[in-house]
Design a protein around this nucleic acid. Structure first.
Lengths: 339, 339
DNA sequence: TTGTAAGCGTTATCAC
DNA sequence: GTGATAACGCTTACAA
């Protein structure tokens, strides 16, 4: 049974169990399914034999024969964004409860995204979930073209692509709520801190804020762009921007596209400029990551209803034949001390 | 080719390509391997046909037939610990470079860990990598018993288990360095902030510190235990502990088992007690997570050589027949302002 | 309720 | 260098 340092258990198959239990392989098969129509007696015999031999069905073979893999690929790129950790935790938990296993793919760069997609398709995953940045329309087009997976789900980001499911928060309403709050609080010189400018979800938040501001004040907010959702990078970029500002031209509020940027912005204001939040400059974020509640930050932000969104995702996976599966969710403003 | 909303591409198999290229299936197969001994002409014909038909090998079938899945399972539980995010990023990147795909399993609780292990074995993964907490000896025993995977790798934690590979930092030397630094700096009333007390790696750090301290001062450090590596929880526990302390009995340094605890401890000192770090109470951590360098913390900590460790892991996976694959790494003390 | 036979898409083995 | 044929372990008809 063992060869010294590496105990290798000979593969036990359904045939072995069938023989041991004195039934056919198909009966063994049925004993391992919820929808079994099988006699109590056979079930017991099979289970006893399976237990004794240490049998568990081989999911590769199941997948090959049934053409369902019960596997979804999760493609992520910006690991510096703390919100991704929250999403991963939530997603993997819900998927597992729903019976899905998760293939985690760290897509290093835009080029790599295509490889990742190809790889997922070779594993014949039932669905691909995208929660990264680097999936611009070109990559998505290639993905849709070569798709061997049934579903392409874009999570936490709106998308108008056909044959693609988008599950996200309603950025327009969310950002309008936020803009309204900011305006009502009396801030009048906002600087918008934006992330990578390569796709729509972010443009949506930015554009919503800009258009709100324009129609309420007739003026254009300032804008600064950070190329990754990385707090440390955001700190540097924001610091540099503000240091080049005359004191009287400083913004009174930094409206950040998400909490990762907001944390960096807060650090910049405090530690690079030596100013106070919100006394000198206020800050708002988006996502309500756990750190937003940290006493160092206490960021006013917008909470996405993540568990609802994830539950819906699992439901969608379970009913692939349903129509109109795109869905926008409403979150809520979380007011803390930063603005 | 499409049925309206869901374009489903009929499965292209090696047989289809073989027919289109006018060769046998096995020749198609060889065209897709690095170690091919195949004529240039056949190769070109096959590749052209494959390209045209959109063929990619089905990894499920490959795995079933060859008994190598090129898949490893990554079992993690404490998602609140920021170090886990760093590890995941590093691991998935290296594994992919080495040709492995990663099955991410979020093990919800101790009980769930066994299910996760079982599940991984059903996918016939080539290896299981454990970087979670909830794998005490009992769970590992069960895993080793029912193993269908070739390797069980315990990452970033020492283990003496047979048939198990442990890749970790040398906790004894690391903590001795740290203790030496703390002692040399003149701190004399340490409180050790420990994580969950259910397995050896942590006991190792704690015991090393305790024994260093005892042999150098003849006295026993204080001890407080936090049940998860969660900064928010650590803050509450540490705050409660210190609030019950007479002012003159307060520790002068909080020696934390890792950075997750150290960040919580720092928050407790500052925001719950209104004291200064390191002026009133100093703080040390372990791991050097990105946030340890944040201006709010600037934690003195110990850096694990993560990329070396990960590279070694991939190497180990590539040479399953090698002996003595356990390995301890040396990191380095990172001195910042917190102690 | 249970059994039989034909796939699923590869790789491995052995001839040619 | 290339091609038949038998695994790999399961599911899905269909028949009993």
């Amino acid at each position: 049974m063992t060869d010294g340092k590496n105990p290798v258990i000979a593969n036990v198959t359904a045939d072995d169990v069938a023989e041991a239990a004195g039934v056919s392989r198909w009966t063994v098969n049925r004993a391992f399914r919820k929808d079994a129509s099988i006699s109590r007696k056979s079930l017991e015999k099979v289970m006893a034999a399976a237990e004794r031999l240490g049998y568990v069905p081989d999911l590769r073979a199941v997948s090959l024969a049934s053409d369902r893999s019960n596997l979804v690929a999760l493609l992520i790129d910006d690991f510096a964004n703390p919100h991704k950790l929250v999403m991963m935790e939530c997603l993997t938990r819900a998927l597992r409860r729903g019976g899905w296993d998760t293939l985690l793919v760290n897509t290093l760069d835009r080029d790599d995204a295509s490889h990742a997609l190809l790889n997922a398709s070779q594993r014949r995953v039932d669905a691909v979930i995208l929660i990264g940045l680097q999936f611009d329309d070109e990559v998505l087009e290639a993905a849709a073209h070569a798709r061997k997976f049934r579903e392409l789900i874009i999570f936490a980001r709106t998308s108008e692509r056909p044959n693609t499911i988008s599950i996200a928060v309603d950025d327009v309403r969310a950002m309008n709520d936020m803009a309204e709050y900011i305006y009502a609080k009396g801030y009048r010189r906002p600087l918008f801190v934006a992330g990578p400018q390569n796709y729509s979800a972010h443009l949506l938040r930015k554009e919503t804020f800009f258009s709100y501001w324009h129609s309420n004040t007739g003026r254009e907010p300032g804008l600064v762009t950070v190329s990754t959702y990385d707090p440390a990078l955001a700190r540097r970029v924001v610091a540099e921007t503000l240091q080049n500002c005359a004191r009287e031209d400083l913004p009174d509020v930094l409206v950040c596209e998400n909490d990762a940027l907001a944390m960096g912005a807060a650090d910049a204001v405090r530690y690079s400029l030596g100013l106070a939040v919100p006394g000198d400059i206020a800050i708002t974020g988006f996502d309500d990551v756990p750190q937003a509640d940290n006493p160092n930050y206490r960021i006013t932000t917008y909470r996405q209803p993540l568990s609802e969104m994830v539950d819906y995702l699992v439901e969608v996976l379970a009913h692939p034949d349903r129509q109109d599966r795109d869905r926008l969710f409403l979150g809520s403003l979380v007011v803390r001390e930063s603005a």
